[in-house]
Design a protein around this nucleic acid. Structure first.
Length: 453
DNA sequence: TAGGCTACGTAGATGCGGAT
DNA sequence: ATCCGCATCTACGTAGCCTA
């Protein structure tokens, strides 16, 4: 929230106190919400809003019958740890920790109402339709802020607003209790709508270490929470990879590493298990608030290894076709698509017009093929890990190892593809593929060790 | 545990608007 | 007026979940 101090005027308001939480419910006229729009950055709302059918429906009902609009929507939920009641049903709210305070729920409503207000000052239908994410809206809002101020008086439809504040402002204990409840409340409010496990885990700070260990270029492309701007890679893809090094370290008793094939076929489970792992006291603890901090060195070392995996994944993705071509014809596989501008006229669908890129580092490659084809090979990298004093580390430089041995491994791996009838689903979902890939990496590694000795 | 189904994402095609 | 580029729509194929 910026500025972090706003005043909200209710038309009429009721107060309810229960436990550490004081709840202010009432209706606010849209014209009195402009300040909230200026300030809101929606950071605490775990599900970033996205324009779509829902926001369209909300805008419709504002236009059609503004009188019953306030009863058709749940409205907006705001959380703030510091507040001050003013005269005439006004409340001043102060936001200190933007991570958990601010708009907790109703991001869609905010976006819809905001877009509606914009539509009153903006005739440009196309520009309006371009607004999809909160960030888009915020830019348009700021650009047209002066014009909106001019029509302020026309905006007199009511919006239901609910504010959660501490029950007592001068009691430290109550405020602490309130803050820790906020995240829970936030999660619960969003539960009926979909709120992914990963989004919640991100709010708890479970992914902080991962963010640090990944190369900045990769970390920037990951969608840490839903509908994040610039998020092309899903968190679960990274978390799934995390289980490769994590399965090498000693885990808390209640957490079991997922089966190898589940890294591909059940990424949801991988994320769930990662959540369980980080939730364990021996791995991370909350640091004064909902944010957890990692203090388990074994898990820490695995996450450091994880930092290398996206780049290695891309390396295998980019180089496997060439390695395979020493033993067979990669392009002949039905599901493989080739980028070749010379074959532009070809209508068979075999050739692509736009150049495919690797998932994490966006390097241009010649072939596009499903992840399932090489997931077992990526898993095979586990053979190059060793544990030392309870931590995991690379036993050899993985990049150089791939340079040296990918060709021969591809030769043995060809069998896996043949047996599965070149069906990536079968390759990626079958446990045997992973066993073979692992043992091929292991064999190559051991042979190299023996020669060196 | 493995096959099957569904939903989502991606790529290509078509249509529209703007610029030359 | 024509061509190019962008955006939107549609169809297909894969990923991930569900069920037996």
């Amino acid at each position: 929230m910026n500025p972090d101090k706003i005043i909200l005027k209710f038309e009429d308001v009721a107060e309810q106190v229960h436990g550490p939480v004081r709840r202010l419910v009432g209706f606010v006229r849209a014209k009195n919400m402009l300040g909230l729009f200026d300030a809101a950055d929606l950071d605490a709302n775990p599900r970033s809003a996205k324009a779509g059918a829902i926001t369209q429906a909300i805008i419709q009902s504002i236009e059609d019958d503004p009188d019953i609009f306030p009863f058709k929507t749940k409205g907006i939920l705001i959380g703030s740890a510091e507040y001050e009641p003013l005269q005439r049903n006004r409340y001043q709210l102060l936001f200190n920790s933007t991570a958990i305070e601010g708009i907790l729920d109703g991001g869609h409503n905010m976006l819809a109402i905001g877009t509606y207000i914009l539509s009153r000052v903006l005739d440009d239908e196309k520009a309006l339709r371009k607004i999809k994410l909160w960030d888009d809206f915020k830019i348009a809002w700021t650009a047209n802020r002066a014009a909106i101020g001019d029509i302020r008086e026309e905006l007199d439809f009511l919006v239901p607003v609910e504010i959660l504040v501490p029950a007592a402002i001068d009691d430290e204990g109550v405020i602490a209790e309130f803050t820790s409840s906020l995240l829970e409340i936030c999660a619960a409010r969003n539960n009926n709508a979909e709120l992914t496990l990963e989004t919640k885990a991100n709010q708890k700070g479970f992914y902080e270490e991962i963010k640090k260990s990944l190369p900045a270029s990769v970390a920037g492309r990951i969608e840490w929470k839903k509908n994040m701007a610039g998020g092309d890679v899903k968190v679960r893809d990274i978390i799934a990879l995390a289980w490769i090094p994590l399965s090498m370290v000693e885990l808390p008793a209640k957490v079991k590493a997922p089966l190898p094939q589940n890294i591909y076929r059940n990424k949801g489970e991988c994320a769930k298990l990662f959540d369980d792992l980080m939730d364990d006291d021996s791995v991370s603890r909350p640091q004064g608030g909902p944010i957890h901090e990692l203090h388990n060195t074994a898990v820490g070392s695995a996450i450091t290894i994880l930092g290398d995996l996206p780049v290695l994944y891309d390396k295998i993705y980019a180089e496997f076709p060439k390695a395979y071509n020493r033993w067979g014809d990669f392009g002949r596989m039905k599901i493989v698509r080739i980028f070749d501008l010379a074959k532009k006229a070809d209508k068979s669908g075999k050739y692509m017009r736009s150049q495919p890129e690797t998932h994490f580092t966006e390097q241009p490659v010649k072939y596009r093929y499903p992840d399932g084809m090489i997931m077992p090979l990526v898993y095979g990298l586990k053979a190059l890990l060793r544990s030392k004093d309870g931590k995991v580390e690379w036993a050899t430089d993985p990049t150089k190892f791939i340079d040296r041995h990918l060709d021969e491994i591809a030769g043995a791996y060809k069998l896996v593809l043949e047996m599965s009838g070149y069906d990536p689903q079968k390759v990626g979902k079958n446990e045997t593929s992973y066993k073979i890939a692992f043992s091929e990496f292991e064999k190559a590694f051991l042979r190299e060790q023996a020669q060196a000795a």
